[in-house]
Design a protein around this nucleic acid. Structure first.
Lengths: 221, 221
DNA sequence: ACCATGCTGGACCGGTGAGTTCAAAAGCGG
DNA sequence: CCGCTTTTGAACTCACCGGTCCAGCATGGT
């Protein structure tokens, strides 16, 4: 989640001239630091001063770039969601070139996905969305649409293809995708006790296998 | 700081029965009000004064009974967990006398469970556990053990019986129970957008049916 | 060299809320 | 009716934090 690398610019400044470019990865650093701090402390207990410190920046600079603590939070969550989604989509994209044993291929993807979903960024994101759904109701749409929703959709696409090819029985691919993901993430969350216990690779593998097994039994052609 | 002030809790007093039995149970009122407020506001933004007000009690009384805001939170969560679990266990207990069509019986129980899990108390509890897992790590054990854990165990018991009776194929009942619950709660959480959208009964029914369908396909004898 | 722009550090204000104190007012047992 | 404990209301302390202001510093473009 730390994105110090000084790439890019494109600051969309509201007032005409682009703000200083090249040097301003400050914004990225701030957003990254913000997510880091919010993830550790939670929204309310987190204080902007610490965000500034972690970002290596002065407090007024934070307010300069992001304005509000609320806005800072929203933007940080948005950015983190994009990062997490990217990796998730890469995982599911592997289903596109699925050759050979269906069961094995699905199992492999399942393992990768459950790994990603148990990773710190993904867990922190879920935690924060859950936590602040009361104070930031739009946030659930904003984040969910960029992560879980997109993931389910991409997976549904792949499953639909497999159905057409006769490798899976005909069924609503959206429901199938939803259930596959639930079979993966549900047990993972439960076993890891919401992330407080880190699961050994073997257990992750077992969860992925069990989920794939059940899914294939229910959905094989 | 730790534990209680010297004056000690009202009811469980070591010195016989002296305290507070005749009077309304303030303690219960406080815990109930506390969960109410915490559920609405979240832990950090909630303030003890409001808890006291909702409980119809003076602020020092709250500190008298529960000591700390932290302790107040823990106790309130504990109490709420017990309440929620009770209803959940009643649902799964219906599987004990399951006669006739397996599919129909499971579907019925599934529908009841998904209703319970989407109810406000259950959702609020999940929200708060997720939210504060960072600041209160023990809480996840404490609550999960009383709700999801116990529920999964009870369900596993029922499934094991069904396997012995030859109605389900032989399989690890714990894994089967875990997956059945995941198939129920996962889609319910996703569709309700973490509780921000209340699901119409028809959709709840559809989720329960889909979950049961998939489960039976995968686990029928 | 010079100015503009933004960054810095630090002081500062104002609000909020945890937790305490205390004297007065119930309740309740005897 | 009397003491015991508990409750009450209110004021109070104290710490923390969001947000702002300002005076000086770095920088890069021209």
């Amino acid at each position: 989640m730390l994105g110090y690398p000084a790439t890019v610019t494109g600051m969309t400044d509201s007032a005409g001239r682009a703000t200083a470019r090249g040097r301003i990865d400050k914004r990225q650093a701030i957003l990254s630091a913000a997510f880091d701090v919010f993830a550790r402390r939670g929204y309310a207990p987190a204080n902007v001063a610490e965000v500034a410190e972690v970002a290596g920046v002065a407090k007024p600079t934070v307010y300069n770039h992001l304005g509000d603590k609320e806005n800072l939070f929203r933007r940080a969550m948005e950015a983190a969601a994009d990062t997490v989604m990217e990796r998730n989509l890469r995982d599911v994209e592997r289903l596109r070139t699925l050759e050979g044993d269906l069961r094995a291929g699905l199992g492999d993807v399942a393992y990768r996905m459950v790994q990603t979903c148990c990773g710190e960024p993904s867990r922190a994101l879920r935690r924060l969305v859950h936590a602040e759904v009361g104070q930031f109701p739009e946030l659930v749409e904003l984040v969910q649409a960029r992560t879980a929703g997109r993931l389910a959709e991409a997976l549904a696409d792949r499953l639909a293809r497999l159905s057409l090819e006769g490798r899976l029985r005909a069924a609503d691919p959206a429901v199938a995708a939803e259930q596959f993901l639930s079979l993966l993430t549900g047990p993972a969350e439960a076993r890891s006790r919401l992330g407080t216990r880190k699961l050994p690779a073997a257990e992750l593998r077992a969860i992925a296998e069990a989920a794939t097994d059940t899914f294939v039994r229910a959905y094989a052609a």
